[in-house]
């Protein structure tokens, strides 16, 4: 098997993994959360059942909804899968990751969010517009912090290409770097905000006053809703894998051999399981904060990311 064809196989494998593993990860987080709160859970596979069910439901469209509303679910799902092809999840050598660096990755997520916000306003309900406005407020504060945190990691590894950065981290000795510690903290705060978890947004709520992401997606139904929910699951998985790729990629395959891929899958599963536990601990311990506290929360993320960058120059 030639090198290029094996890397294409790895790439396809990775996209398939991301797309089909995402509901399982969502199910794992929900299961743990139910256990932590002494509730009976619907099972690990419930997200698959939900998505399957939604695909066979009728789509109810608002009378004055335009093409944007119908196009958005496909756009959001497509952009999220595209991001899944760029982030090194199982192997650092994915051919598509050369097409986009980490700045483009942030832009792809922003594109999906832009269309979601448009669709939220498109149906003409009050909740949709409110959700879009809140989502954009969170996004406008989270993105600079995200870029700042990512630039810190880029500075340390001297590249903005994700696969290159991951490759450098895998092959370099473990060092105590204050800049990376700050960047990790900032990244964790941003990931919470970007994936709409507690304390920024509650993924399980449909209460008018508190929902952010859900308010925007309230009008979707049938297969559209299935795609939106699925994309949401993939995004959660992707942020977890992005965190793994940037801060703890050890065990990830650097080539395309079968043995390294198996090791990669095992370590990925273990790391994701741990991240799921961390998410549940955070969500169970903290209450959702007031929406006007969110700018301060993201301001703290920006501060941490900036401190990371400064400490790279000052201390390393």
């Amino acid at each position: 098997m030639t090198n290029s064809s094996s890397s294409i196989i790895v790439e396809c494998l990775q996209v398939a993994t991301v797309v089909f593993l995402a509901p399982l990860f969502t199910g794992w987080v929900r299961l743990l959360k139910c256990r932590a709160q002494a509730r009976t859970s619907a099972g690990l596979l419930q997200p698959y059942r939900d998505i399957y069910k939604l695909f066979f439901k009728e789509v109810a469209l608002a009378e004055n909804a335009s093409w944007i509303f119908r196009f958005t679910p496909y756009m959001v799902f497509g952009a999220t899968v595209m991001a899944g092809a760029i982030i090194p999840v199982i192997s650092t050598r994915a051919p598509l990751s050369a097409t986009a660096d980490i700045i483009a990755l942030v832009a792809i997520f922003a594109l999906a969010r832009f269309f979601s916000a448009l669709a939220g306003m498109d149906a003409g309900t009050a909740f949709g517009g409110m959700g879009s406005s809140r989502e954009m407020m969170v996004a406008s504060l989270a993105e600079p912090a995200m870029l700042m945190s990512v630039f810190t990691i880029s500075l340390v590894n001297r590249s903005t290409s994700l696969s290159q950065m991951t490759h450098v981290i895998v092959n370099s000795p473990i060092m105590l770097r204050p800049s990376l510690a700050f960047a990790l903290l900032a990244f964790a705060l941003i990931a919470i905000a970007e994936t709409g978890r507690i304390p920024v947004d509650n993924p399980a709520t449909h209460l008018e006053l508190t929902m952010i992401h859900e308010a925007m997606c309230l009008e979707f139904s049938g297969r559209h809703l299935a795609l939106i929910e699925w994309a949401k699951g993939i995004k959660l998985l992707l942020f977890a894998s992005l965190g793994i790729a940037l801060f703890a990629p050890w065990g990830m395959a650097t080539g395309g051999t079968l043995q390294s891929l198996v090791i990669s899958y095992v370590t990925l599963t273990a790391k994701l399981a741990v991240i799921g536990v961390a998410i549940v601990l955070i969500e169970t311990r903290l209450a959702k904060m007031r929406i006007f506290r969110v700018p301060e929360f993201l301001g703290a993320a920006f501060l941490l990311a900036t401190l990371g960058m400064l400490s790279y120059f000052m201390l390393e």
Binding site: M175, L176, P178, S179, S311, L315
Partner: peptide
Amino acid sequence: IEINSLLAALILLTSF
């Protein structure tokens, strides 16, 4: 040196 710079970073963090 590494531990010392990590502690310096933490001192900076506590100042903020």
